Simulated scan of single mutants.
Amino acid sequence: MSSASKAASGPEYELQAVIRRLRTLLTSRDYASAASLLTQGKAHLLRLNALLPSSNTPRAHLILAREVLEAGALTSLHLRDMDAFVRYVQQLQGFYVLPESVLPRQGDNASKITGLYMLLLLSRGDYAAFHTVLETLEVGGDDRPGRVEDDKFIQYPVRLEQALMEGSYDRVWGETKGNRVPAEEFSIFSEVLVNTIRLEIASCSEQAYPSVPISNAKNLFFLESEGQVVEFAKERGWTVRDGRIYFPHQEQEGLASEKDILTTSKQVIENTLGYTRELETIV
Score class of each variant (00 low, 15 high):
Q93W: 13
D83A: 14
E67F: 02
P99I: 09
A110K: 12
L62N: 05
Y88N: 14
G94N: 14
D81A: 14
F85Y: 15
E67N: 08
H78R: 14
T114A: 10
A73C: 10
P104C: 04
L62E: 06
V86Y: 12
P99N: 12
P53Q: 10
H78P: 04
P53Y: 01
N49I: 10
I63G: 00
L45H: 09
Y96D: 13
R66P: 00
V68E: 00
S101G: 11
Q106C: 07
V86A: 15
R80I: 10
L45V: 08
L52F: 13
Q93H: 12
A73M: 08
F85N: 13
T114K: 09
S101M: 10
V97D: 11
H61P: 00
L98E: 11
A65S: 10
A84Q: 11
Y96K: 05
I113W: 01
P104W: 05
G107S: 03
A71K: 00
T57M: 04
G107H: 07
A50M: 08
V97W: 05
S76Y: 08
F85C: 14
G107I: 05
M82P: 01
R66M: 06
A71C: 09
L103W: 08
Y88W: 15
D108H: 03
R66F: 03
T75K: 07
Q90A: 15
L45N: 06
H44L: 01
R87A: 15
G94Q: 14
G72F: 02
T57P: 04
A73F: 12
E100Y: 12
K112Q: 07
L52I: 14
D83W: 11
K112L: 11
V97L: 10
L48P: 11
R59S: 08
A65I: 02
V102I: 13
Q91D: 15
A71E: 00
P104N: 01
L98R: 09
F95R: 00
D83P: 06
G107E: 06
E70H: 01
R80W: 07
Q91L: 15
L64A: 05
G107K: 03
R105L: 06
Q106K: 12
T57Y: 02
L45A: 08
N49A: 13
H78E: 14
S76G: 11
S54V: 02
R66W: 01
P104E: 03
G94F: 12
S54A: 07
D81F: 12
Q90V: 15
R87L: 14
V102R: 11
A110Y: 07
R47I: 09
P104V: 05
I113F: 07
V102A: 10
L98K: 09
R47V: 11
L98G: 09
D83N: 13
M82I: 11
H44S: 07
A84V: 12
L92T: 10
H44E: 14
A65R: 04
Q90E: 15
S101I: 06
R105S: 06
P53W: 04
L62G: 04
V102H: 07
T114W: 03
P104D: 08
S101Q: 13
S55Y: 01
L74T: 06
I63N: 03
L52R: 14
V102W: 04
S76T: 10
L52E: 13
V68T: 09
G94S: 14
G94H: 15
A73S: 09
N49W: 06
L92N: 13
